[in-house]
């Protein structure tokens, strides 16, 4: 997977590429508008000043991360989309109370996290749709081709971890998220998240080893 950046109208547009097959076909995956903290501050001031349109830039900059976090929790695309949208609306409605010394992204993703958790709790006791029951990776559809066996094994092993450990390790490995941010989003102390990630890595290793052994025996 490669990554490229270009600047358009003062905003950095980041594109993430995947390399498919041997012909090195470059396919843009998700376009992320990366905005600087100063620009973010300006946009927040504009929104608070009554320019609601400026909020669309904040949405564009954060929607992929927000949606991904919601999806990692809910494993259901329509539900994740709805939860992420609700989180953006809540963030807009409570923007005046946002503590400006903190990072907007961490605050927003925390709202996304809480909203998605609420959705999940509400869903308990109702029927899950077939897409959400497919598996933890949730990459149904067109991505099977570029998924190797090790991907499948790791994702299957991930499914065996407890929910909080799964989330911690997945958020940590999500692009550009550090331990502080993951802790901020999950609302847990940094050390707790650190322990969760460490424990998850070792459990994944044990589980993966077991799976590979079982597979070798069946061959």
């Amino acid at each position: 997977m490669g990554r490229g950046r270009l600047q358009v109208d003062g905003e950095i547009i980041e594109e993430i590429y995947s390399i498919q097959g041997c012909n090195l076909k470059i396919v843009p995956r998700v376009q992320v508008n990366v905005i600087t903290r100063e620009r973010e501050e300006t946009l927040i001031d504009q929104v608070l000043g009554g320019d609601e349109g400026a909020y669309s830039h904040l949405i564009d900059a954060h929607k992929s991360y927000a949606y991904t976090i919601a999806y990692k929790i809910l494993l259901n695309r329509p539900e994740a989309e709805e939860a992420a949208q609700d989180a953006f609306i809540k963030a807009f409605q409570y923007l005046r109370g946002f503590n400006r010394s903190a990072r907007f992204s961490t605050w927003l993703y925390r709202i996304v996290f809480n909203t998605a958790i609420s959705y999940k709790r509400r869903r308990k006791g109702t029927f899950q749709d077939i897409n959400s029951a497919v598996g933890l990776s949730g990459d149904v559809g067109g991505r099977e081709l570029d998924r190797s066996d090790s991907h499948q094994h790791v994702h299957a092993a991930l499914a065996g971890l407890n929910e909080a450990d799964q989330l911690a390790i997945q958020l940590f490995y999500l692009q550009e998220m550090d331990l502080q941010e993951v802790a901020g989003i999950m609302g847990q102390p940094v050390n707790t998240v650190k322990v969760r990630i460490h424990r998850a890595r070792l459990r994944l290793a044990d589980e993966l080893k077991r799976m590979l052994k079982e597979e070798a025996l069946t061959l």
């Binding site: 993430i16 929607k63 953006f88 609306i89 790791v154 994702h155 490995y173 692009q175």
Partner: peptide, 26 residues
């Protein structure tokens, strides 16, 4: 192997109307 697989996690893309839908429900 775990490190490699997890590090290759990519962002999911929301629908094209995501921003418009949020803006209409602010």
């Amino acid at each position: 192997k775990i490190q490699k697989v997890l590090s290759s996690a990519h962002l999911e893309a929301p629908s094209a109307q995501f921003t418009a839908r949020v803006m209409s429900r602010l």
